[in-house]
Design a protein around this nucleic acid. Sequence first.
DNA 1: TAGTTGTTTAGCTAATTGGCTAATTAGGTT
DNA 2: AACCTAATTAGCCAATTAGCTAAACAACTA
Lengths: 95, 95
Amino acid sequence: MATKVYKALSDPTRRKILQLLRERDMNAGEISEYFDSTKPTLSRHFSVLQEADLIQGNRQGNFIIYRLNVTVLEEAMWAMMDMFKLEHRGNDDEK
Amino acid sequence: MATKVYKALSDPTRRKILQLLRERDMNAGEISEYFDSTKPTLSRHFSVLQEADLIQGNRQGNFIIYRLNVTVLEEAMWAMMDMFKLEHRGNDDEK
DNA sequence: TAGTTGTTTAGCTAATTGGCTAATTAGGTT
DNA sequence: AACCTAATTAGCCAATTAGCTAAACAACTA
């Protein structure tokens, strides 16, 4: 579970894909314009990200719209923090 | 830079090493008791972690004491949060 | 149904990774 | 010097990975 997420994040291309999707949903073709790699190559990156549940693809007619799973990414981060017992700077200091 | 950190984190053995070192400094032999892998194998994990600057080894006589670079790990986490524009839940909300 | 567009799957290759055993280095002891 | 212990480096292997081209699939259009 966790390993899939870390592996997914370990590639620069995939991290940039996530960043792009942070801004807005995009279809595969749009995303590919930001990279030099071929579409098949990017397609495989998409599937890695999907297996880690970090993104989700929805076919809309001819296109497949990819969407970032923000909450999954967020929770992965918090899990990381917990795993290493790092300070959350949590906002539970009200009162 | 970032990629090295992510790659280092992408292996379960290495993550467990970091967790162990979160508790206290340990030498290579001590660490190896927590794993089934051979010492050479673990040694290479150490060097991966060192190249990512996540841990640091200091020879003390016959032993090499490994220490976690907490701040590097922490900063890597924050960089990650920034990269994906996630909420920091920062405690900068005081009035 | 035949064609077109968007995307993925199949199949290949080169590079990287994680594991092993055997050999080497570093330091301390006798 | 000879020896012992702790750890790393060297060298090998099997599995994984990221890239490519070519082929296939899915959905729409004429």
